[in-house]
């Protein structure tokens, strides 16, 4: 049976920061996106090339979707960077997690847990970032905090806080408290939704590949490509909706 670990495995340590295989993976994602954007967006021309045309098509499509939520093109362009970064970060790390070698290249660690009874356990070098709760929780906290910052920036601190703490009427007061609790629930649902999906996908792939190494994992791989896209989209779209609620005056 393949060993399945919920937490990410530590590879080494830099200045007290434990570098796990998922953290390494997110650095790789950043590196890939940096190189890609340097190569693709450096040579932009007013008459687009084939590649540029495709990219602009996607950007336009994304902006249109955001426009559908925010209502205006101006707002959609304003909040596009945050939403698109969340989307790309999650999407690329999910898809990289499916690549061959991501779960299979690694080393055997001598320091096995007490459960394995001193057995040497396999530690992969790379692991899909979102299969670590640290990644999804960090992203969820960042997203929710950003939502509140943007809300304050758009309608002012007093108005934004009055959405949660108000003494206008007892009903509003309790609704505000519930809203506040739901903000914390948002972080948890954000992080566990993404983590659960990606981690389950990883486990699913490991198990199917272990049971039947050939052909059978292929549909599951396709499913994981789809799930990876959907989860990235869900995370990005939920953030969009939360931003649009936070920057609106009435609640």
């Amino acid at each position: 049976m393949p060993h399945i670990e919920i937490g990410a495995e530590k590879l080494f340590e830099i200045f007290g920061l434990p570098v796990t295989n998922t953290l390494l993976m997110s650095w790789i994602v950043i590196g890939i996106l940096l190189i890609a954007s340097l190569f693709i967006f450096r040579r932009m021309s007013i008459v687009p090339s084939f590649l540029q045309n495709i990219l602009e098509f996607f950007v336009e499509g994304f902006l249109k979707v955001l426009e559908g939520v925010f209502g205006t093109r101006e707002k959609s362009e304003k909040y596009f960077p945050i939403v698109a970064t969340i989307f790309l970060f999650v999407l690329i790390s999910n898809w990289l997690g499916i690549l061959p070698g991501v779960g299979s290249l690694g080393f055997f660690s001598a320091e096995g847990g007490s459960a394995s009874g001193g057995e040497r356990i396999f530690v992969p070098f790379f692991r899909s970032s979102a299969s670590d709760l640290n990644f999804t929780l960090a992203l969820a906290i960042v997203a929710v905090v950003l939502v509140h910052i943007l809300g304050v920036a758009a309608i002012g601190a007093g108005k934004h806080i009055s959405k949660f703490f108000t003494f206008k009427s007892p009903i509003d007061f309790f609704v505000g408290i519930l809203e506040f609790i739901s903000e914390i629930a948002k972080m948890i649902s954000f992080s566990f939704r993404l983590f659960g999906n990606v981690f389950a996908g990883e486990v699913l792939l490991v198990i199917t590949a272990f049971l039947v190494p050939y052909l059978i994992p292929v549909p599951f791989l396709m499913l994981e490509i789809f799930v990876g896209f959907i989860q990235a989209l869900v995370f990005a779209m939920l953030t969009t909706v939360f931003i649009s609620i936070a920057i609106s005056h009435n609640h």
Binding site: T20, S26, L34, F41, S129, A138, V142
Partner: peptide, 25 residues
């Protein structure tokens, strides 16, 4: 396996990526 150091590192990663993409893409 939640570790505040890793949480912070991933949050920083997000902002680095946001900066990079904003600037270059």
């Amino acid at each position: 396996g939640v570790d505040w150091k890793l949480l912070l590192a991933q949050a920083v990663n997000f902002f680095i990526l946001l900066f990079i993409l904003k600037k270059f893409a």
